[in-house]
Design a protein around this nucleic acid. Structure first.
Lengths: 218, 218
DNA sequence: ACGATATGAATGAATG
DNA sequence: CATTCATTCATATCGT
């Protein structure tokens, strides 16, 4: 996934989108990214993954999407549909990977995901790991937060998303290693099945409670 | 693809590429990620193409992917994702190339093919027809895949002008539509779930955000 | 050695 | 939710 994370278009929290004058890119390629496709910033990815893995958000409702996108907007241009698609894709691909590498006769009974007390940062499952950490995605700042305390706990100490104010205090909740968050989650690559994340039930998922729990344990 | 046909020799079926197939490897001494990406052996490619052209395999299902990768494994290290990506890419590139010469008889259809980058797609490697005999189905001899000749060679004569209208103009409006519900829900905060109200939208489409962009009806 | 090309890998966006 | 398409990045390989 974010093995390399070619993120160069770091839109300011403002709303710039076509600032081609910047030219501060790595110079690898173009800077004109006025394309139609959303290019998530590192911070946005970090938060999205935090929601996904640490908070168990899988299919956020319209409400949540609005809130999430509002929060992510301070890190770059984003729309609700981007958030929607992101979760859809992330979930689908996680499943797909497993599908490729598991036998069809083994659908029932899979290992329940364990609850890691700390993030598994480096699992060298296979020599052929897709990992290629040689690329450093020029993380702007906040490098190496690495708060490996109680990440997925249900104590609720992470996000603090407000309702009306998009200011929020998110404070990046030390969920994962900041800059390493990308390289962190791609560990469960195509062969490694387990996402080293605990999906503690989201405390803010209405549907979870009223609509019945869908599958989430992997 | 065929043009290139890099003959990087076939690694031992049971061994990973030593990263020195060409001789002076890039010296991956301190970095263990020598195998950054899968390098298919000639046998693997042969079989993959056979499946593609002679058997019409285009988008193998997860089940097929497992089976294919299992079979190819005897010719070299391979994973399910490799097979998956191979077919994806092969199909996509073939279509991409075909999209040029098949200019749809110069209709008004202004296909957005511009490439912001300078790399442009100036590959004239496959000007007219990508194949029509390009691939020689020399009997695999070991897999019994029913090598019939050139049935699937151009079996999919269907041009590639199915749906190419994706330029669109995704209006940036987005989030305003669904914000109606949001304005209401923010009263309760999002930790406090209100059962009496929370199940408004179970599922929704990103259309809600973008509000009518694709009108591919006719 | 370098630059161009080919192609593996990744992912946003859509559709069924 | 699964499948697919398009686009782009990264890199292996080849040509000069």
């Amino acid at each position: 996934m974010e093995t390399h994370q070619q993120q160069q278009n770091q839109q300011a929290p403002n709303d710039i989108q076509d600032s081609s004058s910047g030219g501060s890119g790595k110079g690898s390629f173009l800077c004109r990214q006025s394309s139609t496709r959303w290019t998530p910033t590192t911070d946005q990815i970090r938060i999205l993954k935090d929601l996904y893995y640490n908070n168990g958000v899988r299919s956020p409702s319209a409400d949540q999407i609005q809130r999430i996108s509002a929060r992510l907007r301070q890190y770059g241009k984003i729309e609700g549909k981007n958030v929607f698609y992101w979760f859809q894709n992330h979930k689908a691909r996680e499943r797909q990977k497993k599908r490729f590498n598991t036998s069809t006769t083994d659908h029932h009974h899979h290992v329940p995901l364990q609850r890691p007390t700390n993030i598994t940062l480096a699992n060298n499952k296979f020599p052929t790991n897709i990992n290629s950490g040689c690329y450093s995605p020029s993380s702007p700042s906040s490098t190496g937060v690495l708060t490996v305390g109680q990440i997925g706990n249900n104590g609720y100490g992470s996000i603090t998303m407000e309702k009306s104010f998009r200011d929020c205090s998110i404070s990046a909740c030390g969920s994962s290693t900041a800059s390493a968050s990308e390289s962190l989650s791609h560990n469960f690559g195509w062969v490694g099945i387990d996402p080293a994340y605990s999906s503690s039930y989201a405390f803010f998922e209405p549907k979870r409670f009223i609509d019945g729990i869908h599958e989430e344990g992997q």
